Amino acid sequence: MGQAFNWENEPIFIEDANECWQVRAQAEKEHLVELLASYHLVDIEHIGSTAVPGLAAKPIIDLMAKVKDFNQIEPIINLLQKHNWIHVPTHEGEHEWRKYFIKIHKNKRMAHLHIVEGDSRKWDEHLFFRDALRSSPTLVSEYAALKKKLAEQYSHDRELYTKNKSAFIQSVIKQGNES
């Protein structure tokens, strides 16, 4: 993909919730369903903060697609790259459960795509966390406050920003598992 992008160093900025995120996610989802139909696509979901009405978030759509298995992952990677999805294998080292892609528009991230295999427990965890937030205004408020604080603290370090959100996310998932 020879182009140089500044998206890796793009500062973290949290915006108030925006209804257009749902529309953008649905359009990306429909396009991906069409693209991946012949690759044993099992499901695709809008995840992450932009999938939760009323939650402040980075204005980046997160999608997760489930495929039967990774046997055909190379043709999927090649196909997605032809449709402006940048495969980022360096972000997969600690996350062997997924293949990771970023879509850039005007030198900014506009969407992330996580492709997982059919039996990935991460699929269930992501959906559980999203749905827990959707059903709890208290969790939405707590998570929004944490995200804003971390965005100020780690505005130029996405890894630390993400790492410091994980305790909150895991506590919500753990409470769900105990229920």
Rank of each mutant, 00 (worst) to 15 (best):
Q3Y: 05
A4W: 06
F5M: 04
N6R: 02
N6H: 11
N9L: 05
F13L: 14
I14P: 05
I14W: 02
I14K: 05
E15C: 11
D16H: 11
A17E: 10
A17P: 02
N18M: 06
C20N: 09
W21T: 04
W21I: 02
Q22R: 13
Q22I: 13
E28A: 10
E28D: 11
E30N: 13
E30C: 14
L36F: 10
A37G: 13
A37D: 10
H40Y: 15
L41S: 11
L41T: 13
H46D: 09
G48C: 08
G54L: 06
L55F: 01
A56V: 04
P59C: 06
I60M: 03
M64T: 09
M64P: 03
A65M: 10
K66P: 00
K68S: 14
D69W: 15
E74W: 08
E74T: 13
L79V: 00
H83L: 03
N84V: 00
P89K: 11
E94A: 11
H95D: 08
H95F: 12
R98E: 12
R98L: 09
R98P: 06
K99P: 10
Y100I: 09
Y100D: 03
I104M: 05
I104N: 10
K106M: 11
M110P: 00
A111D: 09
A111M: 13
I115D: 02
V116L: 07
V116P: 01
E117P: 06
D119Y: 12
D119P: 02
S120D: 08
S120P: 01
R121D: 15
R121M: 14
K122C: 08
E125M: 12
F128S: 01
F128W: 03
F129I: 01
A132Y: 04
R134G: 00
S135N: 13
S135H: 06
S135R: 10
P137W: 08
T138H: 05
L139H: 09
E142M: 04
A144E: 12
A145E: 09
L146Y: 04
L146S: 08
K149V: 03
E152C: 13
Q153V: 12
Q153F: 06
S155Y: 06
D157Y: 00
D157H: 10
R158E: 05
R158S: 10
T162L: 05
T162A: 10
F168A: 07
F168I: 07
K174A: 14
Q175T: 05
N177R: 15
N177G: 15
